[in-house]
């Protein structure tokens, strides 16, 4: 483990003042500390941001606003979250373990790094960890890897569950720097790997996630988060789908869909949404619409099953969300 300085900040300004090249913000530490122990991350300075006033869960101006330092377990249990956007709560409760959820912050969750075993093993090459060193996952063990949004440089998945729910709900993140705040749709906050998989998001140096803003969508109470995995708990998704669907008189009026476990970032399924709108809310419609979910998919040697599994996960999630069976 690389030696580092530790500093705690009590204001956002103070935290940003302490930040610089080679620094890292520490919230719950459930990603950062793990990766520091593995020498994957070697910050010179760790800035503890836990005392920053980035808390609170509230409804304001037609949106659910979640402070970046709210813990996963608190968000999952919050009555407003559970009533306005149950899919957020469901996604959180299917993440990690109770112990991890008690520590991990929402902002940190969005910033968590991939679970690719090559990324986490410093004796291995990895373009994300050491740009230009190569990607052994392309030809190595890649059952858990992505089939969508990948590149010849990187095939890692994004690991967050709740980010999938957020992307389905058109959530935005408030990014705070010394220059003030800017707002980015979460879907665009994440970058695709392309030839620079080390750059995972649009966060600038000296910039913090302050808040997540999720527009209220009344019919999204009919929503679900379905996570498919080998182990029934404490395991990342092979595929997951956040689905909210508005069905009236058996016909799909509107729908939101995003997928996890299959792509380089939380993956909004717009083509499937379009195909569903106006369709009869039955399994066959769902299955036909799901076909377009895997357009452009690039399966690898061990993860080709994910294209079929994703389509079936979509169907199952839609059946759950629509209550149609």
């Amino acid at each position: 483990m690389h030696a580092f300085d530790y500093a705690a900040a009590s204001t956002v300004r103070g935290a940003l003042d302490l930040a610089g090249p080679g620094s890292a913000f520490l919230a719950g530490g459930t990603t950062l500390v793990d990766l520091m122990k593995l020498d994957v991350l070697t910050p010179d300075r760790v800035i503890d941001v836990n005392a920053l006033p980035l808390k609170g869960i509230r409804l304001h101006d037609g949106a659910l606003r979640i402070g970046a330092l709210e813990r996963m377990s608190d968000v999952a249990a919050h009555p407003v979250v559970r009533s306005v956007h149950p899919v957020i709560s469901k996604a959180l409760l299917l993440s990690a373990s109770g112990q991890v959820r008690n520590m991990a912050s929402i902002g940190g969750n969005l910033m968590q790094r991939t679970r690719c075993d090559y990324f986490r093993d410093v004796t291995s090459a990895c373009n994300k960890r050491r740009p230009g060193s190569g990607c052994p996952a392309l030809t190595g063990v890649n059952r858990n890897h992505a089939v969508l949004g990948t590149s010849d440089s990187c095939v890692a998945t994004h690991a967050s569950d709740v980010a999938v729910a957020f992307v389905a709900l058109d959530a935005q993140v408030v990014l705070r720097s010394k220059d003030g705040d800017r707002v980015a749709p979460l879907e665009e906050f994440y970058r695709l790997p392309g030839s620079t998989p080390d750059r995972e998001n649009v966060l600038g140096p000296g910039e913090l996630i302050a808040e997540v803003v999720v527009p209220v969508l009344p019919w999204a109470r009919h929503s679900t988060y379905l996570k498919i995995r080998d182990r029934q708990s404490y395991e990342f998704a092979l595929t997951s789908v956040a689905a909210a669907v508005d069905v009236k008189r058996g016909v799909v009026q509107d729908v939101r869909l995003a997928a996890g476990g299959v792509a380089a970032k939380p993956w909004r399924l717009r083509a499937v949404e379009e195909a569903l709108k106006g369709g009869v809310a039955i399994e066959r419609t769902f299955a036909e619409a799901a076909e377009s979910a895997v357009d452009g998919a690039r399966p690898l040697a061990h993860n080709a099953f994910k294209t079929a599994l994703l389509k079936r996960t979509i169907v199952r999630a839609l059946l759950d969300a629509a209550g149609a069976r």
């Binding site: 679970r115 075993d117 986490r120 052994p136 190595g140 063990v141 080998d230 182990r231 029934q232 708990s233």
Partner: peptide, 19 residues
């Protein structure tokens, strides 16, 4: 490379209570 690629308890899955 002859390495065990999932040589950790997050990637090598042993059953949990839910299983």
């Amino acid at each position: 490379s002859a390495r065990f690629t999932n040589a950790n308890l997050a990637s090598y899955l042993v059953p949990v209570h839910a299983d």
